[in-house]
Protein backbone atom coordinates (compact mmCIF):
# COMPACT_ATOMS: atom_id res chain seq x y z
CA UNK A 1 0.00 0.00 0.00
CA UNK A 2 1.37 3.36 -0.99
CA UNK A 3 1.96 5.73 1.91
CA UNK A 4 -0.91 8.14 2.39
CA UNK A 5 -0.63 11.47 4.10
CA UNK A 6 -2.46 11.86 7.39
CA UNK A 7 -3.49 14.94 9.31
CA UNK A 8 -2.91 14.92 13.05
CA UNK A 9 -4.88 17.42 15.09
CA UNK A 10 -3.25 18.27 18.39
CA UNK A 11 -4.51 20.41 21.23
CA UNK A 12 -1.93 23.04 22.18
CA UNK A 13 -1.79 25.18 25.27
CA UNK A 14 0.94 27.07 27.06
CA UNK A 15 -0.67 28.81 30.06
CA UNK A 16 2.18 31.38 30.10
CA UNK A 17 1.44 32.73 26.63
CA UNK A 18 -1.97 31.44 25.47
CA UNK A 19 -5.35 32.69 26.68
CA UNK A 20 -7.00 29.38 25.94
CA UNK A 21 -6.25 26.05 24.28
CA UNK A 22 -6.32 25.79 20.49
CA UNK A 23 -5.74 23.10 17.86
CA UNK A 24 -2.81 22.73 15.46
CA UNK A 25 -2.97 20.51 12.37
CA UNK A 26 0.13 18.62 11.24
CA UNK A 27 0.38 16.68 7.99
CA UNK A 28 2.72 13.73 7.83
CA UNK A 29 3.23 10.54 5.85
CA UNK A 30 3.15 7.56 8.21
CA UNK A 31 4.71 4.19 7.58
CA UNK A 32 2.63 1.04 7.99
CA UNK A 33 3.92 0.51 11.56
CA UNK A 34 3.93 4.15 12.71
CA UNK A 35 2.39 4.46 16.17
CA UNK A 36 0.58 7.56 17.37
CA UNK A 37 3.66 8.28 19.53
CA UNK A 38 5.92 7.94 16.48
CA UNK A 39 3.71 10.49 14.74
CA UNK A 40 4.15 12.91 17.66
CA UNK A 41 7.92 12.35 17.52
CA UNK A 42 7.91 12.99 13.76
CA UNK A 43 6.04 16.25 14.30
CA UNK A 44 8.38 17.35 17.10
CA UNK A 45 11.52 16.47 15.13
CA UNK A 46 10.49 17.75 11.72
CA UNK A 47 7.77 20.37 12.11
CA UNK A 48 7.42 21.93 15.55
CA UNK A 49 9.96 21.34 18.33
CA UNK A 50 7.77 23.15 20.83
CA UNK A 51 5.12 20.41 20.78
CA UNK A 52 5.29 18.97 24.29
CA UNK A 53 4.30 15.51 25.51
CA UNK A 54 5.49 12.93 28.03
CA UNK A 55 6.92 9.63 26.86
CA UNK A 56 9.61 7.26 27.96
CA UNK A 57 9.74 3.51 27.34
CA UNK A 58 7.67 3.38 24.11
CA UNK A 59 6.53 -0.19 24.80
CA UNK A 60 3.57 0.26 27.14
CA UNK A 61 5.28 -0.35 30.47
CA UNK A 62 6.16 3.10 31.86
CA UNK A 63 2.70 4.68 31.69
CA UNK A 64 3.97 8.13 30.68
CA UNK A 65 2.20 8.57 27.36
CA UNK A 66 -1.47 8.18 28.25
CA UNK A 67 -3.40 10.71 26.14
CA UNK A 68 -6.88 11.22 24.82
CA UNK A 69 -7.12 10.26 21.15
CA UNK A 70 -10.48 10.77 19.45
CA UNK A 71 -12.16 10.83 22.84
CA UNK A 72 -10.54 7.69 24.26
CA UNK A 73 -7.73 7.52 26.79
CA UNK A 74 -5.00 5.32 25.35
CA UNK A 75 -1.27 4.75 25.51
CA UNK A 76 -0.12 6.35 22.28
CA UNK A 77 3.04 4.22 22.19
CA UNK A 78 1.14 0.97 21.67
CA UNK A 79 -1.52 2.26 19.29
CA UNK A 80 -0.80 2.06 15.55
CA UNK A 81 -1.74 5.30 13.81
CA UNK A 82 -3.28 3.33 10.95
CA UNK A 83 -5.71 1.60 13.35
CA UNK A 84 -6.95 4.97 14.58
CA UNK A 85 -7.29 6.21 11.00
CA UNK A 86 -9.14 3.07 9.92
CA UNK A 87 -11.51 3.33 12.84
CA UNK A 88 -12.25 7.05 12.92
CA UNK A 89 -10.79 8.50 9.73
CA UNK A 90 -9.20 11.27 11.79
CA UNK A 91 -6.74 11.73 14.64
CA UNK A 92 -7.35 14.31 17.35
CA UNK A 93 -4.94 14.18 20.28
CA UNK A 94 -5.80 15.93 23.51
CA UNK A 95 -4.33 15.76 27.01
CA UNK A 96 -5.95 13.46 29.59
CA UNK A 97 -9.31 15.01 30.55
CA UNK A 98 -10.22 16.41 33.99
CA UNK A 99 -6.57 17.16 34.87
CA UNK A 100 -4.87 20.59 34.85
CA UNK A 101 -2.80 21.07 31.69
CA UNK A 102 0.83 22.02 32.30
CA UNK A 103 1.58 22.44 28.60
CA UNK A 104 0.16 20.92 25.39
CA UNK A 105 -0.35 17.21 26.13
CA UNK A 106 1.35 17.23 29.54
CA UNK A 107 -1.02 17.19 32.52
CA UNK A 108 -0.49 17.70 36.22
CA UNK A 109 -0.92 14.29 37.87
CA UNK A 110 -0.50 15.46 41.48
CA UNK A 111 -4.07 14.55 42.46
CA UNK A 112 -3.62 11.10 40.90
CA UNK A 113 -0.60 10.37 43.11
CA UNK A 114 -2.13 11.99 46.21
CA UNK A 115 -5.18 9.73 45.97
CA UNK A 116 -2.88 6.77 45.34
CA UNK A 117 -1.01 7.40 48.61
CA UNK A 118 -4.30 7.62 50.54
CA UNK A 119 -4.90 3.86 50.18
CA UNK A 120 -1.45 3.01 51.62
CA UNK A 121 -0.47 1.13 48.46
CA UNK A 122 2.40 -0.68 50.17
CA UNK A 123 2.30 -4.11 51.83
CA UNK A 124 1.67 -4.09 55.58
CA UNK A 125 3.12 -7.43 56.72
CA UNK A 126 1.94 -9.37 59.80
CA UNK A 127 3.99 -9.18 63.01
CA UNK A 128 5.05 -12.82 62.80
CA UNK A 129 6.64 -12.96 59.38
CA UNK A 130 7.68 -16.42 58.17
CA UNK A 131 11.30 -17.45 58.55
CA UNK A 132 11.74 -17.92 54.80
CA UNK A 133 9.47 -16.58 52.07
CA UNK A 134 5.70 -16.09 52.15
CA UNK A 135 3.94 -18.98 50.42
CA UNK A 136 1.11 -17.90 48.14
CA UNK A 137 -1.05 -20.44 46.29
CA UNK A 138 -1.81 -20.19 42.56
CA UNK A 139 -5.51 -19.73 43.47
CA UNK A 140 -4.65 -16.73 45.64
CA UNK A 141 -2.63 -15.22 42.81
CA UNK A 142 -5.47 -15.83 40.31
CA UNK A 143 -7.87 -14.03 42.66
CA UNK A 144 -5.82 -10.85 42.21
CA UNK A 145 -7.10 -10.66 38.61
CA UNK A 146 -3.74 -9.46 37.28
CA UNK A 147 -4.27 -6.21 39.22
CA UNK A 148 -0.53 -6.11 39.92
CA UNK A 149 0.15 -5.47 36.23
CA UNK A 150 -1.24 -1.91 36.54
CA UNK A 151 1.36 0.55 35.20
CA UNK A 152 -0.13 3.70 36.81
CA UNK A 153 -0.65 5.51 33.52
CA UNK A 154 -3.70 7.46 34.69
CA UNK A 155 -5.94 6.49 31.75
CA UNK A 156 -8.69 5.12 34.04
CA UNK A 157 -8.42 7.96 36.54
CA UNK A 158 -8.87 10.58 33.86
CA UNK A 159 -11.67 8.64 32.13
CA UNK A 160 -13.73 8.50 35.34
CA UNK A 161 -16.59 10.98 35.34
CA UNK A 162 -16.80 10.81 39.13
CA UNK A 163 -13.23 12.11 39.24
CA UNK A 164 -14.32 14.92 36.93
CA UNK A 165 -17.10 15.89 39.33
CA UNK A 166 -15.70 14.98 42.77
CA UNK A 167 -12.07 15.75 43.47
CA UNK A 168 -12.23 13.85 46.76
CA UNK A 169 -12.91 10.46 45.18
CA UNK A 170 -10.02 8.06 45.65
CA UNK A 171 -10.31 6.88 42.06
CA UNK A 172 -10.18 3.59 40.14
CA UNK A 173 -6.37 3.33 40.05
CA UNK A 174 -5.98 3.61 43.82
CA UNK A 175 -8.98 1.40 44.55
CA UNK A 176 -7.56 -1.26 42.25
CA UNK A 177 -4.34 -1.10 44.26
CA UNK A 178 -6.34 -1.24 47.50
CA UNK A 179 -8.08 -4.36 46.15
CA UNK A 180 -4.67 -5.86 45.45
CA UNK A 181 -3.56 -5.26 49.05
CA UNK A 182 -6.84 -6.38 50.66
CA UNK A 183 -6.76 -9.64 48.68
CA UNK A 184 -3.04 -10.13 49.25
CA UNK A 185 -2.62 -13.10 51.64
CA UNK A 186 0.60 -11.51 52.93
CA UNK A 187 -1.07 -8.28 54.00
CA UNK A 188 -2.17 -7.96 57.63
CA UNK A 189 -4.21 -4.76 57.48
CA UNK A 190 -7.29 -5.80 55.45
CA UNK A 191 -9.78 -4.80 58.16
CA UNK A 192 -8.32 -1.30 58.60
CA UNK A 193 -8.08 -0.89 54.84
CA UNK A 194 -11.74 -1.86 54.35
CA UNK A 195 -12.82 0.54 57.10
CA UNK A 196 -10.97 3.39 55.32
CA UNK A 197 -12.28 2.42 51.89
CA UNK A 198 -15.90 2.41 53.10
CA UNK A 199 -15.66 6.17 53.80
CA UNK A 200 -17.42 8.82 51.72
CA UNK A 201 -14.51 9.16 49.23
CA UNK A 202 -14.13 5.42 48.81
CA UNK A 203 -15.81 2.48 47.13
CA UNK A 204 -19.38 3.85 47.41
CA UNK A 205 -18.48 6.89 45.28
CA UNK A 206 -18.12 4.67 42.23
CA UNK A 207 -21.19 4.92 39.99
CA UNK A 208 -20.21 1.85 37.93
CA UNK A 209 -19.88 3.84 34.73
CA UNK A 210 -17.27 1.33 33.46
CA UNK A 211 -15.16 4.03 31.77
CA UNK A 212 -12.12 2.79 33.70
CA UNK A 213 -12.42 -0.69 32.16
CA UNK A 214 -12.78 0.87 28.73
CA UNK A 215 -9.70 3.03 29.20
CA UNK A 216 -7.32 0.52 30.80
CA UNK A 217 -4.50 -0.28 28.35
CA UNK A 218 -3.69 -3.41 30.35
CA UNK A 219 -7.26 -4.78 30.17
CA UNK A 220 -7.72 -4.62 33.92
CA UNK A 221 -11.07 -4.31 35.64
CA UNK A 222 -11.10 -1.61 38.32
CA UNK A 223 -14.91 -1.65 38.51
CA UNK A 224 -14.96 -5.30 39.49
CA UNK A 225 -12.23 -4.66 42.05
CA UNK A 226 -14.33 -1.85 43.54
CA UNK A 227 -17.40 -4.13 43.61
CA UNK A 228 -15.38 -6.80 45.42
CA UNK A 229 -14.17 -4.23 47.95
CA UNK A 230 -17.78 -3.11 48.51
CA UNK A 231 -18.86 -6.66 49.26
CA UNK A 232 -15.94 -7.21 51.62
CA UNK A 233 -16.60 -3.87 53.33
CA UNK A 234 -20.26 -4.85 53.85
CA UNK A 235 -19.22 -8.19 55.29
CA UNK A 236 -16.78 -6.55 57.64
CA UNK A 237 -19.39 -4.04 58.80
CA UNK A 238 -21.95 -6.79 59.40
CA UNK A 239 -19.39 -8.74 61.37
CA UNK A 240 -18.42 -5.70 63.45
CA UNK A 241 -22.07 -4.95 64.23
CA UNK A 242 -22.82 -8.49 65.31
CA UNK A 243 -19.71 -8.44 67.48
CA UNK A 244 -20.91 -5.30 69.25
CA UNK A 245 -24.33 -6.92 69.70
CA UNK A 246 -22.78 -10.00 71.22
CA UNK A 247 -20.68 -7.97 73.63
CA UNK A 248 -23.71 -5.95 74.71
CA UNK A 249 -25.76 -9.04 75.38
CA UNK A 250 -22.89 -10.46 77.42
CA UNK A 251 -22.62 -7.28 79.50
CA UNK A 252 -26.35 -6.94 80.06
CA UNK A 253 -27.78 -10.43 79.99
CA UNK A 254 -31.54 -10.56 79.78
CA UNK A 255 -32.66 -12.02 83.03
CA UNK A 256 -35.89 -13.92 82.95
CA UNK A 257 -37.30 -14.56 86.38
Amino acid sequence: MAPVSATIRVQRFNPDTDDKPYYDNFDLTPERDTTVLDALHMIKAEQDGSLTFRRSCRHAICGSCAMNVNGHNILVCKTPLQDVLNKNGRVTIRPLPYLPVIKDLVVDRSSFWEQYLRVKPWLIPPEDIPEKEFRVSPEEVTALNNAETCIMCGACYSACQVIGLTKGYIGPHALLKAFLRVKDPRDAASAERLADLAGSDGVYRCHTIFNCIDACPKDLNPTQAIETLRKLAQKRLAYERSRVQRQRSLQNPIVVD
Binding site: N14, P15, D16, T17, K44, G49, S50, T52, F53, I102, K103, V106
Partner: peptide
Protein backbone atom coordinates in the same frame (compact mmCIF):
# COMPACT_ATOMS: atom_id res chain seq x y z
CA UNK B 1 12.48 24.86 18.51
CA UNK B 2 10.92 25.30 21.93
CA UNK B 3 12.06 28.54 23.58
CA UNK B 4 9.48 28.61 26.36
CA UNK B 5 10.28 28.50 30.06
CA UNK B 6 7.67 25.85 30.79
CA UNK B 7 8.17 22.06 30.51
CA UNK B 8 10.71 22.56 27.74
CA UNK B 9 11.43 19.04 26.50
CA UNK B 10 13.58 20.42 23.65
CA UNK B 11 15.94 22.00 26.17
Amino acid sequence: MDKSHRFNTDL
